[in-house]
Structure formats: C-alpha cells, structure tokens
C-alpha cells in the first residue's frame, strides 16, 4: 500500500531525480531537439517541490492537481502540457483515496496514458515518452496479474521503461520537434522517454527502500 507518507516521499524523490538529471536530459534533447528538456523539467519540478509544501496535508487528488498546475505554468516546452495533463488525469483517478494499492496504480497508469495520447495526439512507436510509459504499464499490470506486489511490479515497470528508452533509439520520431528531423532522429534516445524512465525508476526505488 502507498500511504500519504510514502506518497510524499515518492513525489520528493522523483522531483530530486529530475533535478539531478538536468544536464543528461538537456544533452539528449540536443541532437534531436532544442537542448532544453532538462531545464524545462527542472523548472517544473523545482516549482512542484515548492508548491508541495503548501498542500502536503491535502488528499492525493489535490496534491496531484497542484503538481499538474505547477508544471503547466512553469515548464514551457511540450513536456509541460503533456506531464501536466498526466498529473491532472492521475488526480482524477485517485479521488477519495487514502491509500493506493496495485489496482489503483493500474488506474493511474491508464489515466496518464490516455491523457498523454489525448493531449499529444500520439501513440506508442512514435519516439515519445509513451514509449517508456506504455511498456512500463504493461509490465506493471502483467506482474500484478501474476500475483506480484507493488515493489515487484514497480521494479518490472522501471525495467520495461529502460528497454523502452533503448527502443526509441531505433525508431523515427513522428511527433514533437524531433519529427522535423525525419530519418536523422534514428540513433538517439528520446529525451521525454528518458525523463519518464527516471521518474518510474525513482518511484520503484522509494517502494523498494
């Protein structure tokens, strides 16, 4: 079960992981973008940490909505409305919950994926964050269906996300700025898929502490 305490640790931990990986994410955004994915995300998650202080007594849904609004108004790049929509949809998926179990997390994954597809008019195989998140969701769900707990499932999820990032190196970008490069986008990992992997990895690491 994810209680309030663990939940807040997850949010703080994933924000810190993004902040620590600023240069890596900017570097990945250099060859196929405009070198700002790290800076965008760090601005967003620095604001998230600030706003979190005011709402940490609130329920999951309110906290997730606050995170969404912080991202929407500070990130600036495409990742802003995309991650913003993700957290907004996640907020809707946990209304009234005081603890989150495996099933709730599956519902959150589904809300997040629907949100990104809707906002980005995108799907998997287009070299975006969805190529990390969708495999992670599938691995998480399969693990739970086979009797795995949150720890195990979140670990399987982050491994699948890592493989998803590797996969983005082999495909052409169809969505986002990188799509302007066509064939030249092959050979590079997608920055957004990488930031999603970093987030999923930090969630798994808190759950496995």
């Amino acid at each position: 079960m994810i209680d309030k305490n663990i939940f807040l640790r997850i949010i703080n931990n994933l924000s810190d992981s993004i902040i620590e990986n600023k240069e890596l994410l900017n570097e990945l955004d250099r060859p196929i973008g405009d070198s700002d994915h790290g800076s965008n995300m760090v601005r967003g998650f620095t604001e998230v940490k600030k706003k979190l202080e005011n709402v940490k007594e609130s329920d999951f849904s309110t906290i997730l909505k606050t995170i969404a609004m912080a991202l929407i108004s500070t990130v600036g790049g495409a990742s802003g409305p995309l991650y913003g929509t993700s957290f907004l949809k996640a907020s809707g998926a946990v209304v009234g919950k005081e603890e989150l179990d495996e099933k709730d997390i599956i519902a959150v994954y589904e809300a997040v994926i629907d949100g990104i597809k809707y906002r980005g008019k995108s799907d998997k195989g287009q070299k975006t964050m969805l190529d990390a998140i969708i495999p992670a969701y599938e691995a998480f769900k399969a693990c739970v269906e086979n009797g795995g707990d949150l720890k195990k499932a979140s670990d399987e999820a982050q491994k699948a996300a890592a493989e998803g990032v590797e996969y983005t190196k082999t495909i052409i970008a169809i969505k986002g700025r990188a799509s302007f490069l066509g064939e030249r986008s092959i050979g590079h990992a997608d920055p957004g898929a990488t930031s999603s992997y970093i987030i999923l990895k930090s969630i798994a690491s808190v759950l496995n502490e």
Partner: peptide, 11 residues
C-alpha cells in the same frame, strides 16, 4: 513564458 523564455504557458 512568464519568465520571458521560448515556450508556452496554458494559464
């Protein structure tokens, strides 16, 4: 953006 960078802000 509100801090005068390249980008957009829904609000």
């Amino acid at each position: 953006t509100s801090d005068e960078r390249f980008g957009t802000d829904a609000t």
